[in-house]
């Protein structure tokens, strides 16, 4: 299980990385925005993508849309972990094909629950 964590703040990437390790996911990689994440997703095989929304360069929603538009990546499970909390944004992310949405600040429990739920669904 290889997971890519995308966030422009290194501390947030580190927090998520630590929480994932507690959940038993040790194989993670990091990117600081969509522009760096997309080539990584295309060149290496990842099983799961966790991304922030508001990042310089390419935002998380643009990354999600690019992933869904790429035949090879289209079925990659994507969890959005973001401070963006407007209803219309959550609807937009859902319509763009997000698999889960966690608002910051979040708890370890919430992150765990969403990840498990996504794996349950995608099998």
């Amino acid at each position: 299980m290889k997971i890519l964590i995308v966030d422009d703040f290194s501390t947030m990437r580190r927090i998520i990385k630590n929480l994932l390790r507690d959940l038993g996911f040790n194989n993670t990689a990091e990117a600081d925005d969509g522009n760096t994440a997309l080539p990584m997703l295309q060149s290496t095989s990842f099983d799961f993508l966790i991304t922030d929304w508001n990042m310089p360069g390419m935002t998380g929603i643009e990354l999600l849309k690019s992933v869904r538009a790429d035949a090879k990546l289209a079925s990659l499970p994507v969890l959005m972990v973001t401070a963006e909390a407007k209803r219309e944004q959550i609807v937009e992310a859902a319509q763009a094909g997000v698999n889960g949405y966690v608002v910051k600040p979040f708890t370890a429990g919430a992150l765990k629950e969403k990840i498990e739920k996504i794996f349950e669904r995608v099998g």
């Binding site: 407007k86 209803r87 219309e88 959550i90 966690v102 608002v103």
Partner: peptide, 10 residues
């Protein structure tokens, strides 16, 4: 009312 207040709302 245009934003969510918690993870439960999401």
């Amino acid at each position: 009312d245009d934003v969510v207040a918690s993870q439960d709302d999401v």
